[in-house]
Design a binder for these strands. Sequence first.
DNA 1: ATGAAAGCGCTAACAC
DNA 2: GTGTTAGCGCTTTCAT
Lengths: 357, 357
Amino acid sequence: MTRRPGPGDDAGRRRATGEPTIQEVAREAGVSVGTVSNALNNPQVVSESTRERVRAAIERTGYIRNGAARALAANRSDSIGLVVPSLGNSFFVDIAKGALGAARERGLAVLVADADDDFALQDRHLDAFAEARAGGILLAPMHDSIDGISRVRQHGRRVVVVNYSYPTVSCCSVLVDDRAVGALGVEHLVDVGCDRVVLVSVDDFLQPVRERRRGVHDAVARLGLDLEEIEVASLDGDEGRRAAHAIADGLRATGEASRVGVLAVTDSLARGLLDGFVTDGRAAVPDRVAVMGLDGNSGDWNGPISQTTVELPGRHIGREAMLLLLEEIEDDEHEHRQVVLPPRLLARESTVGRGEG
Amino acid sequence: MTRRPGPGDDAGRRRATGEPTIQEVAREAGVSVGTVSNALNNPQVVSESTRERVRAAIERTGYIRNGAARALAANRSDSIGLVVPSLGNSFFVDIAKGALGAARERGLAVLVADADDDFALQDRHLDAFAEARAGGILLAPMHDSIDGISRVRQHGRRVVVVNYSYPTVSCCSVLVDDRAVGALGVEHLVDVGCDRVVLVSVDDFLQPVRERRRGVHDAVARLGLDLEEIEVASLDGDEGRRAAHAIADGLRATGEASRVGVLAVTDSLARGLLDGFVTDGRAAVPDRVAVMGLDGNSGDWNGPISQTTVELPGRHIGREAMLLLLEEIEDDEHEHRQVVLPPRLLARESTVGRGEG
DNA sequence: ATGAAAGCGCTAACAC
DNA sequence: GTGTTAGCGCTTTCAT
């Protein structure tokens, strides 16, 4: 039978969780709860001696503040949520690192949620942060859909978008210049003497992929090159491998003497291609075929030879995004901005050979 | 001037945050708050039509549950906290992925906190999860100190330790057999024909490093080999590079003809060593010097040649740890256990040369 | 400098 | 099946 609280009942306690509350600390220290609260949150208004007694009482009772009660009473939460498609992609880890660093300088905690490349999970995380009344949200979307974002923004949550740009939504966003990524790739391949470029890509429902492709197209047109496109079913390594075999077979068939440049839209695809060319012995890299990836994902770098890629400024993006978010939270005059950061070429063995990188 | 609530005051509201509450939803739907709560948490006890009206009211008002109030009233939180030293280390990303997967099957959210290799920050995160009354905590410690763990455990938080083992603390832990890691390295170097082994390590205040070193010692003794040890100041690549130069100089001086095996306690160190040997042209790898790392950290793999390393079962560790945590949370009869998982050798170019990997 | 007390938005009894 | 209501542990007035 559950005891109901009544007059004379000791503080009307109902549960026996054993977790000391601010009440117990107050009793232990012989002060009121308000004073304990102040000792914790506004030490300057509490006398030295009282502060010390409270400290001791906290120590003795093993008290730990209840974040839920705090957040409820104060109607705020000082943690920032970050939702990324996958921590397996080093780009997002870099973004997280950048955001973490910027938040740390302000004493804010960042909670990272990994959507495991699952769109529904991404939205669940978004909702969870909204329910937790997170101070703000950083989102690296996996989709053109803005339903999730709108929902939480309507609710007053500040969100800044990372690695994506929604023309129809007014919000801050920070992204890399993905067209420049594509252009950088094409230009590099030309620099190393390729007169033909093959782009290996996937269905471009993802904005970054779409933009990189667009950048490749533009650069190829500008430089008056031939472009051949191969669309593979997924970013899986085996897909790249198969594509490599196809390219190598074509090479053998035509007996071409020139060097062909292969641009993989991601490093995982490049990794697969290198396996197909080098490990399977189908073509000499980089002599016959120069291969490079376009997303600097270090998780895929341990192929047969080191991979040329385009380095994305992940940390910078994360940092910038966090700064925008903080500005949006603190400044009522805030106006939404879009920050676009440049990529950088990282030339390595798969295009320039050993010893030149 | 702040209005004080009084009789006749509409629900005694004090703030004008605009965030709809369960009260508003109830009014909108023409039902009581209890019914809204039930519609949300115990749909089966609410009639179909009422449920629908509540749903519509939620839709109309844009209501999002207040997690703080929920957690406070229900005295629970269903999210699990994971504290890792750094997401820059792919080992911890793998652990996170494993934990995430296991939690997802149970419908639990995992919040990841990155301590940025800062011990104080690790403890801050631990405290933050304790304040948030996280359902449980997974911790990959960076230190032998158990103060942080004891504090939160005293408070009833369940914590299982990952990649560390505290003989003096009774709690569940999941780790890799780091002695086997060291032994695997030595055995592999012997397999590829090394008759001398050099271990490049750092000050071993970190348990995994200490254990790997111990494993190396044991294996070397068992196989009757010579072991030379070089202690570098940090895991920084430049340190490895310098060590490589020293080793190469020694090789030249003695004019040794045999193959020497270099064991780097981490892949980042191995990466630096390879730069020192290969990029700087000081010694032929793997012909003269076979190099390998011991922690399978893929972030450091894009050296001049692909790196042999020891693969750590990160995902498996994360999954196992989460299962232990859930068991500890749900089962009162739970007894603490330690799970030790085996590593696996990953032979690549830096020890076996091209084409054999 | 300290105390008293009113809620924060919700859940979980319980009454109907 | 639905309504009522007492807290959950804290912050924040306001009085003292």
